[in-house]
Amino acid sequence: MTATLQPAGPATTAGPAPTPGRRRPRSSAARQRIEIVLLVGPALILFLGFVILPVILAAVYSLYNLPPAFRWEQLAEPDRFIGLANYQRAFDSPEFVRAIGNNFIILFASLLIQGPLAIGIALLLNRPLRGRTALRLLIFVPYVLAEVIAGLAWKLLLQPSGGVNAMLESLGLGFLQQNWLADPSIALWTLFWILTWKYLGFAIILMLAGLQGVPEELAEAAAIDGASWWQIQRHITIPLLGPTIRIWAFLSMIGALQLFDMVWVTVAPTVRGMATETMATYMVQQGQFAGQPGYGSAIAVILFFISLAVALIYQRLALRRDLAGAVTRGVR
């Protein structure tokens, strides 16, 4: 609510700018309004009906104790309304607390391992290199695959008698053989490996795109001043890559918090429950499979607020310079 709330540029008024000079009489404004309604209306109705309304309904259901396949009338039955008991139960449940922990383990592991790896590979691929295009293509391929297909392929490879163990055996590394997806003590890290395999390509492409925006003249000037390749990367390229890194980190965090499909397809329900449950899989397990829509809704609301909190904090702390004026208030 400060005085800086003025439009940042001239082109922020809604609708197409009328052709200057040739103003039509008064019907024009009304017509413009109709156009806006017609254009925005259908999308708005769909958005309200399929996004906003379900969010509100989930918040309402989360305050009730509901049987599976409940009817609307049951919301009015006595004893159905239980206030915040579902939330209490969620935070008292060691399974759910562990699920939150798993989400954050994946989140930090993604940032700390995938980030530096992606930057490093992007820097390498940004140099003149024979077969550079082919390499870039190969690295991006896993990201193009459907998540479920990638997950099932890895699930087959990581069976006790699957491809990975067979390869280790033939390389004389038989002692490294594991029950990759069946041993609760390593399943989370196996999962993290699959996620890295799948999403590293995306991070690298993002970084490569960011590198195109770093002016070559700066590197040339530094080279003339006697800076080594390493010094140029360290002091010029990476700092200028900052906005890209910060946006990637944001996407990665949101992905880690909402992680569902890869876990669901690759890890057997039993091992998932012991070692790799995430908030989203716990939500489906409890809300759908254990037949407790009210409790599942409470988990959904908690997941929503955790994601929102992380997103807002990250925006305030890291993204505010990059997004100035676009999403947040124009803070400089």
Binding site: P68, E95, P184, T270, V271, G273, M274, Q285, F289, A290, G291, Q292
Partner: peptide, 20 residues
């Protein structure tokens, strides 16, 4: 026992299978 109790029961049993 129905879905809710049945699900909790099965979770407890597989934990025993998993040694936890």
């Amino acid at each position: 026992f129905g879905t809710t109790v049945g699900n909790a029961m099965n979770d407890g049993i597989v934990n025993l299978f998993g040694g936890s």
